[in-house]
Amino acid sequence: MKHLPAYFTFWHILGHYSLKWTAYLVLAFLMLPIVIIVPLSFNAEPYFTFTDGMLALDPAAYSTRWYQAIFSDANWLLSIKNSFLIGALAATLSTVLGTIAAVGLSSPVMPFKRLITALLLSPMIVPLIIIAAGMFFFYTRFNLVGSYAGLVIAHAALGVPFVIITVTATLSGFDRSLYNAGISMGASPVKVFWDVVIPLIRPGVISGGLFAFVTSFDEVVLVLFLAGPEQRTIPRQMFSGLREQINPTILAVATLLILISIALLVTLEILRRRSERMRGTEF
């Protein structure tokens, strides 16, 4: 778009620039809330706003006290541990089950394919409040409310659609004749799956797993309904903090979470490139 075509009139040029500025405006809207939180988290005072000292760039107006507060508070430490633990277990569960299912689902002869796909993806569509209410009623019967197992199962169900989507996307670039070749040479479907399919679709599986992890890591509605005090997670802790006592500790946690998102984004990009390369060698 560096040089505009010769047939462009004044109106074309105006349109071009207004498009450009609209795009930048929307990008600014998207980034502003992310950017604003970082400096606020270094506020020396217990408020959510920029103090005069901060605006004057007075070093005394900045402090890391809210970061220290996170790591000296037993509740925050417990919730950090829980978030990673529940996220990891739930992601493992949904990745294992989801990957196996995606292989069956991408078979051209899979019966009721459309219906089953729609069902497997529905946890992404059904409002969380409905899932939470239903799980609260149903899981109670199995003593799963207020337990780690209950939360892991619930979050694994939420993560399934993401694994299915990413793994089927990778499988669509996967040459099925490799699978058929393995079968025709007498290997069992399980062995072929393990030795041939998995290595080839690994990038897709890992990014599906990451999606599932993030889904659990960020989820709060099910936690509000299903977790006991022992199972508090980071989002849960933030949610009650925002409802009850707003203080910059939440901003400090938010800044740390932004760092985690950046790390995830980079990892996913690397995986995507690797997956593209692998596909490239196939053709």
Partner: peptide, 24 residues
């Protein structure tokens, strides 16, 4: 001891007792 906050009222206690999973 896990020391938790709530904002009063009996709803949460009632939910726990009636659903049969007492957390508090």
């Amino acid at each position: 001891i896990l020391f938790e906050d709530y904002s009063g009222g009996i709803a949460e206690i009632k939910a726990q007792v009636e659903a049969g999973n007492v957390q508090w």
